[in-house]
Amino acid sequence: MSAHDDHHLHDHDHHHDHEHDAHEPLVVEDEAGNIEGQILVDALQSLLVERGLIFPGEVRREIERIESPGVHLGAKLVARAWVDEAYRARLLADGKSAAAELGVGVGEAQLIVVANDAGTHNLVCCTLCSCYPRSILGQPPAWYISKAYRARAVREPRAVLAEFGLRVPDDVRLLVHDSNADMRYLVLPERPAGSEGMSEAELAELVTRDCMIGVAVAPAVA
C-alpha cells in the first residue's frame, strides 16, 4: 500500500471542479472530503439508529463481515482446481456450489469461473458501475472502479492489459466479461510452470487478485 502515498490521496490542492476530466480517471476525496464523508455517514447512521432502523453495534459487525473476505478465498478455489481435475470441472460448471464445498460462501447470485488456457485469456470488468466478486475477493482495487478501466476494458482490452505489463499474444483469444447484471466472474488462471511439486497451500500463495481479475497471469515458479 505505498503507491498512493505521494499522489492522489493527500493532494491538498486538489479541487473537485477542475481536477477530474483533465487526466481523469480516479476521483478520490482529499483530506477535507474524507472528513466530510465521515461526518455525513456518521450523521446518517445516527438518524437511522434514532429511527430504530439500525441497532447500535450492527454497523460495526457488518464492517467486520465485509472486511473478512479477501483474495485468500479466491486463491483457495484456484489452488484446489489446479490439483483436482474433478473439482475444476465442478468449479467451472457451478462456481457457487463448488466454492461452498470448500466452505467459501458466495453472496452473489452466481459465480461464473472462466478458465485461462494456452489458447484463451479472460478479463473481467464492469462498465456500468463496479460489480466485482466481493464475497470472495473483497473490495475491488481503485483502478478497477476508475473511469479509464471501466471505459476501455471492453474496447481496447489488449492495450489495457499492456499497461498492466501483460502482453497477450495475437493467437490467444481474449474474452472480456462485462459484469453488468447478476453474475460475478472469477478468472481461473493457468497453473504456472515449475509449480509441479508444490502443495495446495503453496499453490494458493501464487494466486494473486490480479490473476483472478485477468490483468495478470501467475508467473512461472523459479
Binding site: M1, H23, P25, L26, T127, A142, W143, A151, R152, R155
Partner: peptide, 18 residues
C-alpha cells in the same frame, strides 16, 4: 454512468486504502 467504450486516459494503476 454508461461509459463502456468511451475514450479515456491510462488506467491509474494504484492501490488505495479502504
Amino acid at each position: 454512468h454508461d461509459i463502456g467504450g468511451d475514450p479515456a486516459g491510462a488506467v491509474p494503476i494504484v492501490e488505495l486504502p479502504w
